[in-house]
Each structure stands twice: as C-alpha cells, then as structure tokens.
C-alpha cells in the first residue's frame, strides 16, 4: 500500500548564519538592529528535501505546506519557501518574542491535525537558540516515530528509511508513516529561488493565524535572566619557527 505524502515543513526566521551575533547592552539578548535575517539553514535543507521527494518520485507527494511560528516578518521565510516550490503556507503570528520549543511543538501538532499532514520534515535545530528540540517534541506529542539528524531519506510505500548522523558515524533506522524527520547538514544542497518564482510566490497562499485561535498557551516556562558574551581568551603569541611553536606549547603545559 502506498500513502500519498502530505508534507509539512516548519521554517524559522533567524539571524543570517554569516553574521557574528553581538550581545546587546542590556544583556537581554543579541543586538537585532540592522541585522540581516534569513531562513534557518537547516529549515532550508528541509524545504529542499520536500521538493526533491516530489521531483524524484512520481505521484508520491500530494502537497507541501510550510509553517512559520514568529512575528509578521516571518512571512519573508514563508515566501522564500513558496518561491522554491512549496504549495501553501501558514504564519502563526506570535509577535516578536521568541517562543519556546514546547509551545512551537504544540502549535505544529494542531496544524498537522488541521492540514492532515502525515510527514513532517524540519531542521534539526535553529542556529539562534541552538535547541534541537522541536522535531522530537512534536513526535512525542503526536505519538509518531522520529528520525533526527537525517543524512539520507528513502521512502518506499509507507515505509521511511533514514540514515542518521550519530556520534562517531551513521545509523540506519526505518519506520512507517506518519513520521517526523529532522534534517542534518549533509542531506542536500538547497537551491536558490529564481526571480520569476519569487514573483509567482507572492500570489501563493499564506494564511495567518494566532496561537490563541489554535488553543495553544505559549506562556514561557523558562525565564532568560541574562545573556552575556563568553569569556574572552587572553592574547596569544605568534612564533616564527616550529621549535618556538613546540617550546611555547610546552611552556603552557599542554605537551
């Protein structure tokens, strides 16, 4: 028996990976003024994989729906996903404040139900909070199998085989749909959206809902007391020769 995939791809808007974040003066978070934002790189890989599943398997994919939980500006990353080939999208407008992963997972669980999704592909982590929670939490809430850190995904009938990156190597697991898979770096190289597709994406569906309308309480459970720069390292020395190099390391007691 083969099940048609109704894929959901959650995407997050984050500070661009190329930018070095600076802690703000008030030590409440990082400086956001004048900073470039992009789709989280692991979410981009998830979007790409959804598109490749459709392109590589005739009749496998029925629909691809992108979701972002964030402020109004998160529309940008949904438009990016739509421009790359995602069909429809939903913004869950929660305002500008960072929403905890448990709340995001609860919101996504509601949307999975509404969308009748049977396969959720998402990034293993967002590069801002570096949490690496949402996929696993969503899988737990839905009671679905999970495979995190995917380096390869194969679907045959309703069986999904995933090669996972683990400490020291790889592991292969399989499970039946419905399922949650989170993406790791080596899964694919995301495409760029073409200008005509960026224009077309402006007409694709982008619904906005609120966490309230989904009946999800997003009150934080964890309070951020302080965000600080990591301790700076003392200035180092530069040497000219390999002998001096060895001598200096020995001086520091590391050889």
């Amino acid at each position: 028996m083969s099940t048609k995939l109704r894929i959901m791809v959650p995407v997050k808007r984050v500070v661009d990976a190329a930018i070095r974040p600076r802690v703000n003066k008030a030590q409440t978070g990082i400086e956001t003024q004048g900073v470039k934002y992009s789709i989280n790189p692991f979410c981009d890989i998830a979007v790409e994989e959804a598109l490749r599943l459709r392109e590589g398997n005739k009749d496998l994919v029925e629909s691809i729906h992108a979701v972002s939980v964030g402020g109004k500006k998160s529309q940008e990353v949904l438009r990016t996903a739509l421009a790359k080939g995602v069909d429809t999208s939903t913004l869950v407008d929660v305002g500008e404040k960072e929403v905890e992963t448990l709340s995001v997972a609860k919101v996504l669980a509601k949307l999975v139900e509404q969308q009748k999704s049977n396969f959720v592909l998402l990034g293993k982590q967002a590069i801002d909070s570096d949490a690496n929670h949402t996929g696993q939490m969503l899988a737990g809430l839905l009671g679905w199998p999970q495979a995190t850190n995917a380096a390869k995904i194969e679907i045959s009938g309703d069986e999904v085989t995933v090669t996972r990156e683990i400490d020291g190597g790889e592991e292969v697991v399989k499970a039946k749909l419905p399922m949650i898979v989170t993406t790791d770096l080596r899964l694919n190289e995301p495409r760029y959206a073409s200008l005509p597709n960026i224009m077309k994406a402006k007409k694709k569906p982008l619904d906005t809902v609120t966490a309230d309308s989904l009946g999800v309480d997003i009150t934080p459970r964890v309070e951020i007391l302080k965000v600080a720069e990591p301790p700076a390292r003392g200035a180092g020395v530069t040497v000219e020769t390999t002998d001096d190099f060895i001598a200096k390391i020995k001086e520091k007691g590391a050889l």
Binding site: H133, Q136, A139, G140
Partner: peptide
C-alpha cells in the same frame, strides 16, 4: 548532550509537558 540525549530527552520532556534546558 549526545546524539542519544538529543534524540530522547526533548521527546520525553514534551510528554511530561516540560520545556527542557539542553546543552
């Protein structure tokens, strides 16, 4: 905080209705 802990702990936390603190 290994591949093992990262896979298991957030899932269990969601089932306990807890926001985990990882790493």
């Amino acid at each position: 905080s290994s591949a093992f802990g990262r896979a298991v702990v957030p899932r269990a936390a969601a089932l306990l209705d807890v926001q985990p603190v990882t790493d």
